[in-house]
Simulated assay, not measured.
Amino acid sequence: MQKIIVLIGPTGIGKTDLALKLAPKINAEIISGDSMQIYQEVSIGTAKPTAEELRQVKHYLVNQRSIFEEYSVKDFVAEGTKAVNQIVAKGSIPLVVGGTGFYINALVNKLQLGEPGDYQTSVDPKWEKYLKENGVEKLWQLLNEKDPDAAKKIAPQNSRRTLRALTVISRTGKLFSQQQEKISPRYDALIIGLNSDREEVYQRINKRVDKMMAAGLLKEARFVYDNRAREHQAIQAIGYKEFFPYFSGEKTLDECVNKLKQASRKYAKRQLTYFKHQLPVVWLDPLHDRETPEKALNEIKSFFVDCKIKLNTLEK
């Protein structure tokens, strides 16, 4: 089974920095495991690698789509597996880096819901009608009544996943959560996770939001807001929708910035919950342990010990 490396962790923990240090040392190329970095028009709010960072190491699934195009986990898995094959064909190591847990899980494992099937290719019109008539919250409440375990793993605002879960339930007669559990590995993956003291992670997130604001996040959010007439994924992304009340005159800018910080902290908590419950992770603390890069390299070396791939830098 093909070996790959996966680097995960909550937003703002330093995944990109570590990935850029690791990649040249292990002859790796990076596949973005973030659901938003695929979009060309949004960079600041998605914490996309800079132009310089993209030049340092070859990246895949970055800047490949417009926000006006549909992009699903099924697309991610298809393009992610293609990227893995391309990297392996070069004799390099695939390094998946990101924080979108469900996408990464679907790539690493053959989640049943990530595979082609008639009930997955479209959303049941009756649920779309229900959403239009009753709103996102009630749609999620309906899922919570039908399948509480599935609802726990889906944010109430994520109408796309809620619609899909309800569609799967109605078309298969089986719980969405039970079908998610029926998985088999697609790759032999070493999953390295970054995490640290919760309050320190939260402080980093707050500072990160301030840096994003200084870099022009408000302008980017305005672009998303002005184009919200069309339903696309960026509308629902943390980092953009929090500013909509400011643009409509309902809240002050400071209120919206604070809301973004709060939403980002909550998102980090949800990320960690998903990672800890859904994936086998080797955890490292980059904020308190200066040897984190070396420990990550040692984990990788051990992982490839019986593989024909040469990790020349590690063997020196």
Rank of each mutant, 00 (worst) to 15 (best):
L287N: 00
E128I: 09
L279A: 02
F68V: 04
D306E: 10
E69S: 08
P286Y: 06
K241C: 03
V6P: 00
S302D: 12
P280S: 04
E200G: 07
I67H: 08
K21G: 03
Q178E: 15
L190E: 03
E137Y: 11
R161F: 01
D34K: 06
Q236P: 02
K90N: 07
V96R: 01
F303A: 13
S122T: 14
R230G: 08
V281Q: 04
I235G: 07
V108S: 00
E70M: 05
E29Q: 11
L314F: 04
H288I: 01
R65W: 13
S184I: 01
I169M: 11
F176G: 04
N158C: 03
D17M: 07
V209Y: 06
C307F: 06
I191H: 00
K259V: 01
Q86M: 13
K48D: 04
V282D: 05
Q179Y: 12
N105T: 01
K276E: 15
V209N: 06
K74S: 15
Q271W: 06
E52Q: 14
D210R: 08
Y187F: 15
R270E: 12
E70H: 12
Q86V: 06
E52W: 10
A189P: 00
L22Q: 03
V57P: 04
L54N: 08
Q141N: 12
E128W: 05
T50E: 07
E70V: 11
D17G: 09
K219S: 13
S72I: 02
Q236K: 10
V6I: 01
D124A: 15
A150M: 04
T121L: 13
V97K: 05
K21Q: 11
D254E: 14
Q236Y: 07
E250R: 15
D17E: 12
N85L: 05
T16C: 07
E41M: 05
E79I: 02
V73F: 02
A189T: 00
C307L: 06
S302F: 04
Q180F: 14
G193E: 01
T16E: 06
S35V: 07
L253I: 08
L260A: 03
D197C: 02
S43A: 08
T252A: 08
Y119R: 08
E315H: 07
I169W: 11
N144K: 14
K261Y: 06
L111C: 09
R265W: 02
